[in-house]
């Protein structure tokens, strides 16, 4: 296999509080292969967004990057000076932020906002033809060139954000819940746009989300996060056919079916205090299969080629229902 385009090793992002650090992203490692789409899933508060703000070095006080290495195209991102890193943002590593459609400046025309991104990073504003080319790439009509954000629908604004993200031909795009809060049909259109742009530019992508259905439609591999840790990484087909971690199973089984009416799986329980994670497995307080072995450290280990999991009972529980 060739060198991964992005490699994350032992990344830790902590938030300081008066009662100790919140371990929002705690020692996560993964690779993003060239041209690949990796899904990063988990519930609210699992550290997905914090992980990407670590990768993009956008962590602000009281948060800090407490350790780890991020390598993009062979270059250590954490060691770069702020100014050097700033030049990599957008041009090598672009973000479509969560709620991107609300991140547009309401007082600036759409075309001016796209031009602004390009000018800030290259020193020269793009010409009209380039902006229209970007519009076309994401399926936006020419007439919005002179429009303001409030004149567009949510789906169109989301596509403007995709156009911005690809404006500088980045190597990696991170899409943080790029299609949440949209109606299903519009969500499908935006997802379709994202996939088209990805394939046309050969860009690698990290898709953050909580919807396992959408992940099944869009990604090549999935990394599941729980309470700041990655608990499983697997190719999408293996993840759905043979999930190795009990939490992955719960995530998959909690997607309500449209073809079979069945009793719903109720999983309650509250996540531990993120300042004070339990010894051993991170999921033990909510896991239906917890036993004595779970208080021992659970490193990521290979279950089968390409599938790694942080659960000592993975083989034994294979096929078992949660």
């Amino acid at each position: 296999m060739s060198e991964p385009v992005l490699s994350v090793r032992g990344l830790k992002v902590y938030y300081a509080t008066p009662d100790g650090d919140v371990l929002a992203t705690d020692d996560i490692s993964f690779d993003l292969e060239r041209g690949e789409t990796l899904g990063l899933v988990g519930e609210s508060g699992s550290g997905k967004t914090t992980a990407t703000s670590g990768i993009l070095r956008m962590v602000s006080s009281p948060g800090r990057i407490a350790g780890g290495r991020v390598t993009l195209d062979g270059e250590d991102m954490i060691a770069l000076s702020d100014e050097e890193f700033r030049k990599r943002r957008w041009s090598k590593l672009a973000l479509i932020p969560q709620g991107a459609m609300n991140s547009l400046n309401p007082t600036m025309k759409i075309s001016a906002q796209i031009a602004d991104v390009v000018r800030t990073h290259t020193g020269a504003a793009p010409d009209r033809a380039r902006v229209l080319e970007l519009f076309q790439m994401v399926g936006l009509p020419e007439r919005i060139y002179e429009m303001y954000p409030h004149e567009l629908s949510g789906g169109m604004k989301q596509r403007v954000c995709i156009a911005m993200a690809v404006a500088l031909n980045p190597t990696v795009i991170i899409a943080d819940e790029a299609t949440s809060a949209l109606d299903v049909v519009v969500q499908r259109v935006v997802a379709q746009t994202l996939a088209k742009v990805r394939d046309a530019l050969g860009v690698s992508m990290i898709m953050i989300g909580h919807d396992m259905g959408l992940m099944a439609q869009m990604v090549d591999r999935i990394a599941v996060m729980y309470a700041g840790k990655i608990v499983e990484i697997a190719p999408v087909a293996d993840m759905f056919a043979r999930p190795g971690h009990p939490y992955s199973k719960i995530l998959i089984e909690s997607v309500p079916s449209l073809t079979e009416r069945r009793p719903m799986k109720i999983t309650e329980g509250i996540t531990h205090d993120p300042r004070n994670p339990p010894e051993g497995c991170i999921f033990q307080l909510r896991c239906p299969h917890v036993n004595d072995g779970c208080t021992k450290p659970q490193p990521m280990r290979e279950l089968r080629p390409g599938q790694t999991v942080a659960c000592h009972r993975a083989e034994e529980l294979e096929g078992a229902h949660v």
């Binding site: 499908r188 099944a216 999408v236 759905f240 449209l258």
Partner: peptide
Amino acid sequence: LIDSVPKPDP
């Protein structure tokens, strides 16, 4: 609408 609901099946 129903066809656009993402199916949890790759």
